[in-house]
Design a protein around this nucleic acid. Structure first.
Lengths: 196, 196
DNA sequence: GTGCAAAACTGTAGCGATTGCGGTTTTGAA
DNA sequence: TTCAAAACCGCAATCGCTACAGTTTTGCAC
């Protein structure tokens, strides 16, 4: 068996996932209807027909996690993008490609998805939470970059770079041309701001 | 009269300032005694012998503002540092000097002050709030830099630079040698990370 | 199919931050 | 002295979130 560890869509798991989805769906609906701040967790739980305590059992991250999740795979995929980059590709190139492939930066997207991104961007608490999801990858990104470049683990330069890279999604969120903004940002990380 | 607009330490202003100070002092004491999360606003108000509503009247920013203030002068002094920089001094040089002159980066400091800085650094909510105080200067810093360098107002490069500069205090907060860290950070903003 | 423990879910109670409100005292200035 | 604004007060209420204790559901071994 080449199976390593996953395959169990038993009734239990299915129901759990359904509850989770009901909560997330209810939240998205209500948020888009009335705005993030005007919706209470009680209302979300009610529309999803669950108890408030169940809501928090599924989304310990609180209200904002209902739309944005807990970002649990971000760090891993980020690290993978760096580690498994092409032969001769630089770390920054790999990171730029990684972001370019993400939803926000590719031009062809679901209408609903666009709408949701815009909503998050225009809601301060959600935007701050989204940013934080990226920034919380700082430690792991710093570590991978240290491994891949042969620099010491605690290197300040790399911590700075990691943070700056992870701020990019937030910084380019409002730009009318995200792709161009992404290139500009990475260009500056490579070459700095000479002459300013 | 060369007087423009300030000079009134009437009884009213004095009492107001006293109340404010009583609140800030009570908060600092309690926080250092028991830790930020273990202190309630009710306890702070009680030690300061005021009502809770009075506390919020003085510090609308909430609990964290009791130690860190509302950062209302930051943006102005930052802009001034750039605008009134020496002849031939670059914008980045001026910003580096500005930060170097700030408490956290100069080696000779009050014991109490050091203790407070360390406390803020080690308390996640306070550290996040402190960072936010800097980042909220992003707009105004971007604007000044645009004026001073003759670039367009909405220039993305400058917004990126502003954010990155303002992240520096947070990024170097844990470094054992803040001065060196500051230099390293500005070095990278000038020259980027070539070869990474 | 019986039995049982863990997982998922429930309602209630309660804490703490923050706000709104209406009322009281203090203060500055006419 | 008089009056309005400012500062303060206490109270009630909202909202996010957690703790707790009890109930239902599910997976699984027997």
């Amino acid at each position: 068996m080449t199976e390593t560890a996953k395959k169990e869509p038993g009734r239990r798991e299915r129901k759990k996932a359904a509850t989770r989805k009901a909560l997330a769906d209810a939240a998205l609906e209500l948020f888009l209807e009335r705005g993030f701040e005007k919706v209470t967790v009680a209302q979300i739980a009610e529309r999803a027909d669950t108890a408030v305590t169940t809501l928090f059992a599924h989304f310990p991250g609180g209200k904002e996690a209902l739309i944005l999740g807990d970002g649990s795979e971000r760090a891993a995929s980020l690290a993978a993008a760096v580690r498994e980059r092409g032969e001769g590709e630089s770390v920054l190139d790999a990171l730029e490609r990684f972001f370019a492939g993400r939803g926000i930066f590719s031009s062809d997207q679901d209408h609903a998805f666009r709408r949701q991104v815009e909503f998050v961007t225009n809601t301060p608490k959600l935007r701050a939470y989204a940013r934080q999801l990226w920034v919380s990858c700082e430690e792991s990104l710093t570590k991978v970059m240290a491994e891949e470049t042969g620099r010491p683990e605690g290197d300040l330069s790399l911590r700075l770079l990691a943070r700056y890279v992870l701020e990019i999604p937030d910084l380019t969120a409002l730009d009318p041309d995200p792709r161009r903004a992404l290139e500009a940002a990475f260009g500056h990380l490579r070459r700095g701001w000479p002459g300013v």
